[in-house]
Computed example of a mutant assay.
Amino acid sequence: MTRPPFAPVTEDDIAIVSAQLGRPARNVVGIAARCVCGAPTVVATAPRLADGTPFPTLYYLTHPAATAALSFLEATQVMNEYNQLLSDDEQVRSRYRRAHEGFLADRETLGTVPEIAGISSGGMPERVKCLHALAAHALAAGPGVNPIGDLALARAAWTPDVCECLDYTTADE
């Protein structure tokens, strides 16, 4: 099995992600998506944290503007609409299941954690639970892989193609 194409993580990336999160970044193994300016947007996180805790969320959205846009979207109760779409549309349901399976295969390249076997994130494959996780997966995997993540990104007032980053290089000065 080949590893997903995570960009190697640098010390600068860790500093930026830590600033984005407002806390130290933990167990980042790669950068799965970036803003047009190059700043990390989605990190890939180890499936088992350094303290031994299983961590099923491989793709973690870190960009503050993206996180805010997805939080706003979640507040509109759009997840109910997306859950209904999953219930009603066999094609979307099938694509969502394939996204779940691809997510699990990606995470498996980083190690096997029995406690989270078969568990992905965002509610996949049965429901829509967290748009942040689904959008992160869609950004990491690319368009057409996660249909609900793609829908959420299309509806959110944010895109990685327009930089809304803070100047993290001067944040500590």
Rank of each mutant, 00 (worst) to 15 (best):
M1S: 14
T2A: 15
R3M: 15
P4E: 09
P5Q: 12
F6E: 02
F6W: 13
P8T: 10
V9L: 06
T10F: 07
A15N: 10
V17L: 04
S18D: 13
A19D: 12
A19M: 09
L21F: 05
L21M: 13
G22I: 09
R23C: 14
A25N: 05
A25R: 03
N27F: 00
V28L: 02
V29P: 00
V29C: 06
G30E: 04
A32C: 07
A33T: 04
R34G: 01
G38N: 12
A39P: 00
P40Y: 02
P40N: 00
T41F: 00
V43S: 06
A44S: 09
T45C: 08
A46G: 05
R48S: 06
A50M: 07
G52I: 14
T53M: 11
T53N: 14
F55S: 14
P56E: 07
T57K: 11
T57E: 04
Y59E: 01
Y60A: 10
L61A: 03
L61S: 04
A66S: 13
A69G: 13
A69Y: 14
F72Y: 15
L73K: 13
A75P: 15
A75F: 01
T76M: 12
N80P: 00
N80W: 13
N83G: 15
Q84K: 11
L85K: 03
L85I: 11
D88A: 10
D88N: 13
D88C: 09
D88M: 04
D89S: 08
E90K: 07
Q91V: 12
V92D: 07
V92T: 07
V92F: 11
R93N: 03
R93K: 12
Y96A: 02
R97F: 12
R98L: 11
R98G: 12
A99M: 03
H100Y: 06
E101C: 09
E101L: 15
G102R: 05
F103G: 02
F103A: 03
F103T: 05
F103K: 02
A105E: 10
D106P: 14
T109M: 14
T109W: 07
L110N: 05
G111I: 08
P114C: 05
I116K: 07
A117Q: 10
A117W: 11
G118H: 14
S120D: 06
G122I: 10
G122C: 08
G122H: 06
G123D: 15
P125T: 09
E126D: 15
R127K: 15
K129R: 15
C130V: 12
C130F: 10
A133T: 03
L139K: 03
A140P: 04
A140Q: 02
A140K: 01
A140C: 07
G142H: 05
G144L: 12
P147V: 03
P147H: 00
I148L: 01
L153H: 02
A154R: 04
A154N: 10
A156N: 09
A156S: 14
T159Y: 03
P160D: 00
D161M: 06
V162E: 11
V162Y: 09
V162M: 06
V162P: 12
C163K: 05
E164R: 00
C165Y: 02
L166G: 08
D167M: 09
Y168N: 04
Y168R: 04
T169R: 09
T170H: 13
T170P: 01
A171Q: 10
D172S: 11
E173C: 12
